[in-house]
Design a protein around this nucleic acid. Structure first.
Length: 206
DNA sequence: CTTAGGG
DNA sequence: CCCTAAG
């Protein structure tokens, strides 16, 4: 009877939510709100982190409170105080764990939104790798993605990995915007080349 | 901080 | 994308 809002495909299309642009003081809150929007609209719940994110957002923004009569609550609590298995944990072990998220942010690091590489980006990546090789992603980033704030050199390294894989599987198994076969060929070529030259002359000719 | 790989 | 041992 009821038809979901989403037409069909292309679940993600809200990279930057203009609805949540804050004055500039609470970026964190803004980002979390955006994340919540994405989750609600996309239902991209596949990783356990997604759930954690939602809970966090709900607690922080929506402030969901269960309005229960005091009488009932108290009564239940009083009656249900049976036996509770208390796990004997070592406080020492827990205290030693550093667990520092990102740059000194004790907050829950939210997973970055998906940014499928465009063909143009792939082109830039391939060209950079052809020149610099596969062992200097920091330089690759600076040369081809210096302005892309979201593409880290680790992202580029990962993308190259998937590109090599994509180039090897059959075109039917590939997903997303079809990458020109010409580029995939260059990927395999560069990969083969830099694989054997791996430990040789890694000095950039630029 | 950057590499390099598994998750 | 994330996480992180190594360098």
């Amino acid at each position: 009877m009821l038809e979901p809002r989403h037409t069909s495909n292309s679940p993600s299309s809200c990279n930057d939510n203009p609805c949540f642009l804050t004055t500039g003081s609470q970026q964190k809150l803004s980002k979390q709100s955006t994340s919540l929007m994405l989750q609600q609209g996309t239902y991209n719940v596949s990783q356990e982190r997604s759930r954690i994110k939602i809970e966090s957002c709900v607690e922080g923004d929506l402030n969901v409170v269960s309005s229960q009569p005091d009488t009932y609550a108290n009564n239940n609590v009083a009656k249900c105080r049976t036996l509770v298995a208390v796990p004997a944990i070592n406080m020492e072990a827990l205290a030693v764990v550093p667990f520092r998220r990102k740059s000194g942010n004790p907050d829950f690091a939210q997973r970055r939104i998906r940014r499928p590489f465009s063909v143009l980006e792939v082109e830039a990546l391939v060209q950079a790798v052809e020149k610099l090789g596969t062992g200097r992603w920091r330089d690759v980033k600076q040369r081809a993605f210096d302005h892309a704030k979201h593409r880290t050199y680790v992202d580029l390294k990962d993308k190259w990995k998937t590109l090599v894989h994509t180039a090897r599987i059959s075109p039917q198994q590939r997903r997303g915007e079809p990458v020109p076969q010409e580029l995939l060929d260059r990927v395999l070529a560069a990969h083969a080349y830099w694989s054997q030259q791996q430990c040789k002359h890694q000095l950039k000719p630029l």
